[in-house]
Design a protein around this nucleic acid. Structure first.
Length: 809
DNA sequence: GCTTAGGGTTTG
């Protein structure tokens, strides 16, 4: 078994260091040797839960779930260096057992998802731990569990047990027995070394693999047969231009081509002579990967299949083709132009955001879009019935001036049906048409708009005509090339708030900086030392469970430590209960015993002579021989309980793994590093006895409860991990100390996070947040400098009501 | 299992 550091070790190493963004980073995936029994290799503290018994209310601590990988979706890149992957695992049914809910979806997030995609094959046996259980929104059948496992963050852990191939895949007898599907199941990495041919080496009826530069492409369109069809033309250093046709029933398996100049790698395509020209057609086992064509840009494969071969040699070929292509005139001078640069009667590609849409008739759909720029010509208004509009049916006058009405026809109507308001689109071969052209169902008052521009996407796929929904990264890439701050602002502003007097936000800032709002990509470029105001959405946050966000902070040595577990504390106290050795008492102590509730224990009470002299003997009690439960019961009646024990014949405090003080429901802890604890009574001068006074008297460096969360923020330009820590109490409007003991407060924080980051697919979407960020120099886990970010001076627009609070400790 | 399309001189 490949051993990795555990998250606990990871944490320990970080103690006392400034907060780096790796704080929640390490997520292990263990690969067990082939053929081993997964069960024998899994840590013994994990107890396996059968898949049908999984519920959202189960305690996931030290639990594991085991199953065979029966399907895997491709790795989804949700942001730079952040990934998501969905897989389904299935448990072998016990003989005679019902087959209900024998399989469950597993959603893996972050770096673990990437590692998973590179490591795990269908058929492997998986053991997952450190997961949470969520209700699944996916359509369910009787075999698939209505919940899914979420593996995210620190505790997520996967053990992979490889299945040995049933036999030599190359042997003819094995091939006879196997279906196409099972060859995929046992596909091993690194078995095939591909050789790539140049376009002038193609021979009729041969199956080859090759690289090329895209010089023409159509978005996949529905063929008359069963598949979608992608049609493209590619070239390479041989300067031949070859038409390539790809049939595939799944859209996601089609080449992800965004623009002319993209690099494409094709595996297992067949060369065919057609009309005396060589053409290429996909054949069995076909796969495709594409890359951006920009010289010097990152070589990031855009693949749909989970298993694809990619190595240094591929990287070299991509770079070589890019350099070659740069010397050719392949790229159109303007790949896409903004609305502000559109000329009447021209065809162009438009990158835009869909605001609303309306079906006009069976052959025509209206898309209302904008790209943040103002068209130099007035835009045609198209009036449609309110009831047929999906999305807002009207916008303010100011917004209307920015909105282009795009009429899409025929085959594009089907594509338009799938679009959702808010989607970012690229519309290829869009035509700008002046005047009130005939639009089905339009009223005569449209004639007023004779000079106004309308936009048509004609039927058919000629000239690459089509619509593509842009992924976040693609949009971001487009964004980076825009050097117009006004447009940046537009892009970054949610449509529903632009131009309105009140800019809604779930948060308000209380800082005095006059910083102008900026984008996350600008924040990233600025480096450490600055303060920034951003308008963002909360994409995700860690940890998901509030108790994991509660930490203890030492203001002296600046370290952050975990809150000791109640069970461990209880064990410590219980252990000392059995210790009956006597000890000498300090001269200031008055001693008494309590009626033993438990015959094995003697609860000893020690009081301060000073306080007794003042007439308040029970204001501070030093208690030994009591369990945690007893201590807590005493704390209900006495304001300050200090747990003590006998150590080497003397009265002593516990090791600081235990609370040094219990006040009501609150437990207070001391810093192990900064405390020199001894049993002492408070000095004479003090009037009010509180945790600070007691800590000082005992030589304990008091630890402060803090909330520590990592938020992943997003806007249209980028994503950014920031910490919520120093001002977390301000952010939520309640104290971390209270939230440690108050269930209402805990629920309030969890509800607030759910409001800021509603689950996928919920109504209303993610709210926008105005936040003040500070950038500072921190360290990563290797002690290398790294810029970290914190949310400061920002408060959620919500109030925690303490009315329901019964016991304010 | 086979087919689909085979770029294109757009035009509501």
């Amino acid at each position: 078994m490949r051993l990795r550091k555990t998250t606990a070790c990871h944490f320990k190493r970080k103690r006392g260091k400034s907060l780096g963004s790796d704080y929640f980073g390490a997520m292990p995936l263990y690969v067990l040797p082939e053929g081993t029994d997964a069960g024998a290799q899994i840590p013994a503290h994990l107890s396996q839960v059968p898949i049908p018994l999984i519920t959202t209310t189960m305690d996931c601590f030290n639990k594991s779930v085991k199953g065979k990988v029966i399907s895997q979706d491709p790795l989804v890149s949700v942001a730079a260096d952040d990934f998501m992957l969905k897989t389904v695992i299935q448990e072998d049914p016990a003989p005679g057992a019902s087959s209900q809910y024998m399989s469950i979806s597993v959603v893996v997030l972050g770096a673990l998802a990437k590692e998973f995609s590179e490591t795990v094959n269908q058929g492997d046996v998986l053991v997952a731990s450190g997961f949470t259980v969520e209700e699944s929104s996916a359509a369910q059948d009787r075999t698939l569990h209505p919940c899914h496992l979420l593996l995210s963050g620190n505790d997520a852990c996967l053990y992979v047990c490889r299945q040995l191939p049933p036999s030599d895949p190359k042997s003819p007898s094995a091939n006879m027995k196997k279906t196409t599907r099972s060859t995929e199941v046992v596909r091993r990495p690194n078995v095939t070394k591909y050789t790539y041919v140049k376009l002038d080496e193609l021979k009729d009826q041969t199956v080859v693999s090759l690289y090329g530069v895209v010089v023409f492409f159509k978005q996949p369109f529905k063929s008359r047969g069963t598949d979608f069809c992608s049609s493209l033309k590619i070239t390479d250093q041989s300067n031949l231009k070859i038409v390539c046709t790809i049939f595939c029933d799944k859209l996601e398996n089609h080449p992800k081509i965004f623009q002319i100049g993209d690099i494409i790698r094709l595996h297992r395509v067949k060369a065919q002579l057609f009309n005396s020209s060589m053409t290429l057609l996909n054949t069995h086992g076909f796969s495709v990967v594409t890359f951006d064509g920009a010289v010097g840009g990152p070589v990031e494969p855009r693949a749909s299949s989970l298993h694809f071969h990619f190595d240094k040699e591929d990287r070299r070929i991509v770079k070589e083709l890019r350099s070659w292509a740069a010397t050719q005139t392949l790229r159109p001078p303007l790949p896409t132009i903004p609305l502000s640069a559109v000329q009447p009667r021209t065809y162009f590609d438009l990158t835009c955001q869909l605001l609303s849409k309306a079906v006009i008739d069976s052959t025509c759909t209206l898309l209302r879009v904008w790209d943040g720029t103002r068209c130099s010509r007035p835009l045609l208004r198209v009036i449609v019935e309110r009831s047929s509009v999906e999305g807002p049916s009207s916008f303010s006058r100011q917004k209307e001036n920015l909105i282009a009405n795009v009429l899409v026809y025929d085959n594009h109507v089907m594509v338009a049906r799938e679009l959702k308001p808010g989607d970012f689109l690229r519309i290829y071969n869009l035509r700008a048409i002046p005047g009130a052209s005939k639009v089905p169902g339009l009223t005569s008052n449209q004639l007023e708009d004779q000079d106004h521009l309308a936009f048509h996407l004609h039927g058919g796929t000629a000239y690459g005509r089509g619509i593509r929904v842009l992924t976040f990264e693609k949009f971001q890439e487009q964004e980076e090339s825009v050097d117009d701050t006004e447009m940046l602002e537009m892009w970054c502003t949610p449509p529903e708030t632009l131009g309105e007097d009140t800019v809604d936000s779930m948060t308000v800032m209380s800082c005095s900086h006059s910083a102008q709002p900026t984008t996350l990509s600008q924040v990233k470029r600025s480096g450490p030392g600055g303060t920034h105001h951003v308008r963002v959405q909360l994409k995700s946050y860690q940890p998901r469970r509030l108790y994991q966000a509660l930490k203890l902070y030492c203001s002296k040595c600046k370290s952050i430590v975990e809150v000791p577990d109640d069970e461990l504390v209880a064990d410590l106290f219980s252990e000392s209960c059995t210790d009956t050795s006597s000890c000498s008492l300090p001269p200031w102590v008055l001693y008494g015993q309590l009626e033993p509730g438990n015959p094995n224990c003697t609860v000893n009470i020690h009081m301060s002579a000073e306080l007794t002299a003042r007439g308040t003997p029970t204001e501070l009690l030093f208690i030994s021989g009591a369990t945690l439960k007893d201590m807590c019961l005493l704390a209900e009646d006495y304001p300050n309980i200090v747990p003590v024990r006998s150590s080497e014949g003397r009265l002593a405090l516990f090791d600081l793994s235990a609370p040094f003080l219990i006040r009501g429901r609150k437990k207070f802890f001391g810093c192990k590093r900064c405390s020199e604890a001894t049993v002492q009574e408070p000095s004479e001068e003090v009037e009010v006895i509180d945790e600070k006074v007691i800590a000082e008297a005992l030589g304990v460096q008091l630890l402060q409860f803090v909330l520590l969360m990592k938020l992943e923020l997003q806007d249209a330009t980028d994503t950014l991990d920031v910490f919520l820590w120093r001002d977390a109490e301000l952010f939520f409007g309640l104290s971390a100390e209270d939230s440690a003991v108050n269930q209402e407060a805990q629920r309030y924080i969890e509800q607030t996070m759910a409001l800021l980051c509603p689950p996928e697919g919920s109504k209303g979407g993610r709210p926008w947040l105005n936040l003040c960020l500070t950038a500072y120099s921190g360290e990563d886990e290797n002690g290398h400098p790294q810029t970290c970010y914190q949310v400061l001076h920002s408060k959620v627009n919500r109030t925690f009501s303490t009315q329901t609070e019964q016991d304010p400790a």
